[in-house]
């Protein structure tokens, strides 16, 4: 299992980074995912949208290996994800949950450093390289100057950025973000969009759950609409965000327009 190919997180080079086929997940005896088909290529940003309770977070948690599918096929770099060891999954997938939880006064640098865990030996200390990667991650999210501050004393948005920095330091080819913009101000949201584009240029992929179907579209390669535990449609934003599909997914009449400021979803007055 510990072959060179696995360690470099390449798996089968030609395979898509993440492939779900007929994935079913049940939580507390309620079916949440009812046969999801979804693929994510390397270097791609896929935006996952759908109404509240459609199963978006469950899909992310499944892709992070935190929930085991009852049926269907879930492959990461061409290998069956449920049969990979936890640590190996953590080297390939970084997951940022919706709500970052902290009970102790870690500094932001220490939080980012936690992302190095899957790469460290059991008793080993972080090396200067790990430290440099953690600092770089904080810098890329624009919070390098907060490195020494306690996570309990910074704002909710800064806490969210620190959680994303932790995921970046993990250096996984797949990044799962659950509404990362929820606590972010305009400037930080914009910076995040730019960061995601840089990441895809580096060959990393992002599966991104968001309700922000406006500005976020400008950095998405594809959009997938999730409704009642199934992928309704997936493809280029213009193909997927059609009035009929939007109506089916959200139950409102909305339409995608291309304004000077970029793509926008227009709701009925």
């Amino acid at each position: 299992m510990v072959s060179g190919a696995v360690r470099s997180a390449d798996g089968a080079p030609g395979a898509p980074l993440l492939a779900m086929r007929g994935v079913q997940v049940t939580l507390r005896s309620a079916p949440i995912l009812r046969g999801v088909n979804l693929q994510l290529a390397r270097g791609e940003v896929l935006l996952l949208a759908g109404r509240n309770g459609a199963g978006k977070t469950t899909l992310l948690r499944t892709a992070a290996g935190l929930l085991a599918p009852e049926a269907g096929e879930l492959r990461l770099c061409g290998e069956s994800l449920p049969s990979l060891p936890r640590r190996e999954i953590a080297r390939r997938v970084a997951y940022v949950p919706q709500q970052a939880a902290f009970a102790f006064p870690w500094s932001l640098l220490e939080v980012a450093l936690m992302g190095r865990t899957p790469h460290l030996g059991r008793f080993g200390f972080e090396t200067p390289r790990d430290l440099a990667l953690a600092r770089e991650s904080l810098a890329r999210l624009g919070i390098a100057d907060l490195a020494g501050r306690s996570i309990l004393e910074v704002s909710g948005g800064e806490r969210q950025l620190a959680a994303i920095a932790r995921a970046l330091a993990q250096q996984a080819p797949l990044l799962l973000l659950d509404e990362p913009g929820a606590h972010l101000d305009l400037a930080h949201r914009h910076a995040l969009h730019q960061l995601l584009r840089q990441l895809t240029a580096e060959g990393r992929s992002v599966l991104w759950v968001t309700h922000d179907l406006g500005p976020a579209l400008s950095c998405a390669d594809r959009v997938a609409l999730l409704a009642e535990g199934r992928v309704l449609a997936a493809g280029a934003p213009a193909e997927v965000l059609r009035p009929d599909l939007l109506r089916a997914a959200f139950g409102v009449d909305a339409r995608l327009i291309h304004s000077e400021a970029g793509p926008l979803l227009q709701l009925p007055r």
């Binding site: 948690r61 290996g65 970084a94 939880a101 936690m114 865990t117």
Partner: peptide
């Protein structure tokens, strides 16, 4: 004692710890 670093992550919540490779 061998769990010390895992405990650091466990304090973030079980999901976050698991997502970082902790059993």
């Amino acid at each position: 004692l061998p769990l010390a670093r895992a405990l650091n992550l466990l304090a973030l919540g079980e999901e976050s710890a698991a997502a970082l490779g902790i059993e």
